[in-house]
C-alpha cells in the first residue's frame, strides 16, 4: 500500500495467494479441535523453520487482542474471516509484510505474497518458491485429476488467486466504471472492494481477481492479467484522466482542491469520507496537479486513518465520535507537515 512500484498511479498492489492443505488431515470443516491444534503446530514449525523470510512474526490469533486482529485486517495481512472466532489458527508474517501465511483459515494454509504496484510475476515467483520450500517439509493434498485439493471446490486445481488492487477515480468520475466492471465479469473475473472477499468496492478502489482455478495453468492466468485485463484497465483510466484534464480541467481541479480543503480543515472525518477525499487527493498527486504533496504520504494516510491504526496511534481505544475527531486532527497535521516540508 505504501510503496510505489510499476504503474503505481493506478495499481496500488498486486497479490498472489495459493491455497494448500496438508495431506493426511481432513479439511477444517471436519477437523477436531485437537487436529486443528496439530495443524497449527505443524504449519508454524515448518513456516518459521524454513527461512522463508529473514525475519518472520507468528501471531496466534485466538490469543491476540481484537485491536491487533483488526490491525492485521487493515494491513491486508489476514482476511476478515480469519480475524474472527476462537478456533486454533494463526498467521505468519514476513517482517517487511511482503508475505503472510494464514494457517487454518478456510484451508490449512493460504500462502499470500503482496507487492506494491504491478508486480504479479515477481509476486507469483515468490509464492511459488515458498510453496516449494513447504512442500519439501510436508505433503500437500493433491490429485492428478483435480490438482491441489481445497475445502471449497471453487479453489481446487492451482489453488491460485491473483488479485490486483486498482485506483480508478477518473473512470468513476466519467461514469465509465460500469463498463469496466461488466467487461471484467464477462471474463469471469471478480471485482471486489478495498478489503477483498465479501466487500463491495469502496469509493474508487477496485480489486480484480480470478474466479476459476481448474483447467488453466498459473502462467496462463498470470498472462491474462498482465498482458490483457490490467493493462487495458490502466489504459482506460489514463484515457479518462486525460479527457478530464483536457476537457473538464476546472471540474477535475475543483474535486481535487475541494478534497484538499476538507482534509486540511475538517474537524470531524468518518472513515468512508476520508477514503473518498484521499482518493481525489491521490488523483491530484498522481496527475501532477498538486505539487507539494507526495504519493507516499497519501498512501500512508489511507492505511493510518483506518480505525485500528488510529487507535494504535492514539494509544487508547476510541469510540466512533472520538475516532472521527482524532482522524480529522491527524490528517490535518500530517498534510500540514507534508506540505510545509514541501516533499515530493
Amino acid at each position: 500500500m505504501r510503496g510505489g512500484g510499476p504503474h503505481s498511479d493506478v495499481v496500488i498492489s498486486s497479490r498472489v495467494r495459493l491455497a494448500r492443505n496438508i495431506a493426511g488431515f481432513p479439511f477444517l470443516s471436519c477437523a477436531s479441535r485437537a487436529q486443528r491444534d496439530e495443524l497449527v503446530d505443524i504449519a508454524r514449525r515448518h513456516v518459521l523453520g524454513s527461512g522463508i523470510a529473514e525475519s518472520m512474526l507468528w501471531v496466534d490469533l485466538p490469543d491476540s487482542p481484537p485491536m491487533d486482529r483488526q490491525l492485521l485486517v487493515e494491513r491486508h495481512l489476514i482476511s476478515r474471516q480469519h480475524s474472527q472466532g476462537n478456533e486454533p489458527r494463526g498467521v505468519a508474517i514476513a517482517i517487511d509484510e511482503s508475505v503472510s501465511i494464514m494457517v487454518n483459515e478456510e484451508d490449512h494454509l493460504r500462502i499470500g505474497v503482496l507487492r506494491s504496484g504491478m508486480q504479479l510475476d515477481d509476486g507469483y515467483a515468490h509464492a511459488n518458491q515458498i510453496d516449494d520450500i513447504l512442500e519439501g517439509k510436508t505433503d500437500f493434498a493433491y490429485s492428478s485429476t483435480f490438482g491441489y485439493l481445497t475445502a471449497c471446490p471453487t479453489n481446487v486445481g492451482t489453488g491460485i488467486r491473483i488479485s490486483v488492487m486498482l485506483h480508478l477515480p477518473a473512470l468513476v468520475l466519467t461514469g465509465e466504471i460500469e463498463k469496466v466492471k461488466r467487461a471484467a465479469k464477462d471474463m469471469h473475473l471478480a471485482v471486489r472492494g478495498f478489503y477483498g472477499e465479501g466487500t463491495e468496492s469502496t469509493g474508487d478502489f477496485f480489486q480484480v481477481s480470478n474466479q476459476t482455478t481448474l483447467g488453466r495453468s498459473e502462467n496462463e492466468m498470470l498472462d491474462d492479467f498482465q498482458m490483457g485485463v490490467i493493462p487495458k484497465i490502466i489504459e482506460y483510466e489514463h484515457a479518462a484522466r486525460h479527457a478530464l484534464a483536457d476537457r473538464r480541467a476546472h471540474v477535475l481541479d475543483d474535486r481535487i482542491h475541494r478534497a484538499l480543503g476538507l482534509l486540511t480543515h475538517a474537524r470531524l472525518l468518518s472513515g468512508d469520507e476520508a477514503l473518498a477525499l484521499l482518493s481525489h487527493l491521490r488523483l491530484g498527486v498522481t496527475m501532477g496537479r498538486l505539487k507539494d504533496i507526495d504519493l507516499v504520504s497519501v498512501n500512508e494516510l489511507f492505511l493510518l486513518t483506518q480505525p485500528a491504526h488510529l487507535q494504535k496511534i492514539a494509544g487508547q481505544s476510541l469510540d466512533g465520535e472520538q475516532r472521527r475527531r482524532f482522524r480529522a486532527e491527524f490528517v490535518r497535521k500530517r498534510l500540514g507537515a507534508s506540505r510545509s516540508t514541501g516533499s515530493g
Partner: peptide, 25 residues
C-alpha cells in the same frame, strides 16, 4: 457438473504439480 460451472468448463487440473504427485495418494 458443479466444477465445470465454477471453472468455465475446466474439469481437469493443468498447472503446477508437487514432486510427489501420483506416487502417494
Amino acid at each position: 457438473p458443479l466444477l465445470e460451472r465454477a471453472h468455465e468448463g475446466g474439469n481437469c487440473h493443468i498447472g503446477k504439480a508437487p514432486r510427489c504427485a501420483g506416487t502417494d495418494e
